[in-house]
Computed example of a mutant assay.
Amino acid sequence: MRQNKTALGAANFKVGKVDGDFGKLTEDAVRRFQKVYLPREVDGVAGLNTYRELDKVVN
């Protein structure tokens, strides 16, 4: 989870403290990311499509 939080932060979707917890701030950041990059998949869950898209955005 730390890598995902770091990647979300690098993509300008702030998640608060980078730790191993998938809390409300992380879920909110995932939802905001999905609204921009995966608008048909906004569910706040960091699934495979979200990981793939996040990797594209950050790298």
Rank of each mutant, 00 (worst) to 15 (best):
D55G: 13
Y37S: 00
K17N: 15
A29Q: 00
L8Y: 04
Y37W: 12
F22M: 09
V15A: 08
T26F: 06
K56L: 11
V18G: 05
Q3R: 15
V36P: 05
V36Y: 02
R32G: 03
G47M: 01
R31N: 09
L54W: 02
D21T: 13
R40I: 09
V18F: 08
K17P: 10
V57T: 08
V36N: 07
D55P: 04
D43M: 07
T6S: 12
A11P: 07
L8S: 05
G44F: 01
M1S: 09
L38W: 04
V58F: 06
K35C: 07
F22P: 02
N4A: 15
L8G: 03
R52I: 09
L54E: 00
V30H: 01
V42L: 08
D55K: 15
Y37E: 01
K17A: 14
D28Y: 07
A10G: 09
D43V: 08
T50D: 02
Q3K: 14
E41V: 10
T50P: 04
K14F: 13
K24S: 14
M1K: 14
M1R: 07
G20R: 11
R32D: 12
L38R: 01
R31D: 00
R52C: 09
G47K: 00
G16C: 07
V45K: 10
G44M: 06
L38Y: 04
V45Y: 14
A7K: 13
V42Y: 04
Q34N: 05
V30Q: 01
T6N: 11
E27K: 14
V30L: 04
N49A: 14
R52G: 10
N12T: 12
Q3G: 10
A11R: 04
E53F: 05
M1V: 11
D28T: 13
F22N: 06
N59C: 11
R40F: 13
G47V: 03
F33E: 00
V15Y: 05
D19K: 08
E41T: 06
Q34I: 00
D43I: 02
T6M: 13
R32F: 00
M1C: 08
Q3Y: 10
Q34V: 01
Y37D: 01
R52M: 10
V30T: 06
V36W: 00
K14R: 12
G20I: 07
R32S: 15
E53V: 12
A10H: 11
T6F: 08
G47C: 03
D43T: 09
R32A: 14
L54V: 02
V42D: 07
K35S: 08
L25W: 03
N12G: 10
N4H: 14
R32H: 09
G16I: 06
G44W: 01
V42N: 08
